[in-house]
């Protein structure tokens, strides 16, 4: 087997030819529609809570609470993983995906104990989102402060 750089490049071309690509177009459509549906549910919830005479700020918080709660419930019931398989980014990007990413390791690592298992591993997936989300918002804040 020719493991030189050239041999590896040749093999990489063979692999590329033999490996089917993900159906990106279909996945985008599914993500667009399913993500849209989740956002529409969010909007309906917002209207509902405002109708309950909550302030817009409080109603928005309640929308998040409801969606996160629902997502956690669906994750625990094993339904969210099936949705995620079909919807892809449509169920990952909204706040429901964030909830799923926290609850799923919590369930999976509970066997290793409540402290070093569930609590410690709870943010293995969501951790980077929090870290880089915070960092990005700081950067944007700086730029906004000086550019305004």
């Amino acid at each position: 087997m020719d493991t030189s750089k050239k041999g590896q490049q040749k093999y990489a071309e063979m692999v590329k030819k033999a490996s089917p690509n993900s159906p990106v177009f279909g996945d985008c459509i599914k993500a667009f529609v399913s993500g849209g549906i989740i956002c529409t549910i969010g909007q309906l919830l917002l209207d509902f809570y405002i109708g309950m005479e909550l302030s817009e700020k409080n109603a928005a918080a309640w929308v998040s609470i409801t969606l996160v709660g629902l997502s956690a419930l669906l994750t625990a019931l094993g339904i969210y993983e099936k949705l995620g398989k079909f919807c892809g980014a449509g169920t990952i990007v909204p706040i429901t995906g964030f909830a799923n990413s926290v609850v799923s390791p919590a369930i999976e690592f509970k066997k290793e104990g409540m402290v070093f298992g569930m609590a410690a591993k709870m943010f293995v997936v969501a951790g980077p989102v929090i870290v880089y989300g915070t960092l990005t918002s700081m950067l944007v804040g700086f730029v906004y402060y000086f550019v305004k």
Partner: peptide, 17 residues
């Protein structure tokens, strides 16, 4: 899956390969 990829209940897609 738990050791090498993601927790099972996480809603992800698997590539065709």
């Amino acid at each position: 899956e738990k050791q090498f990829r993601f927790p099972l209940p996480l809603g992800t897609q698997r590539p065709p390969t």
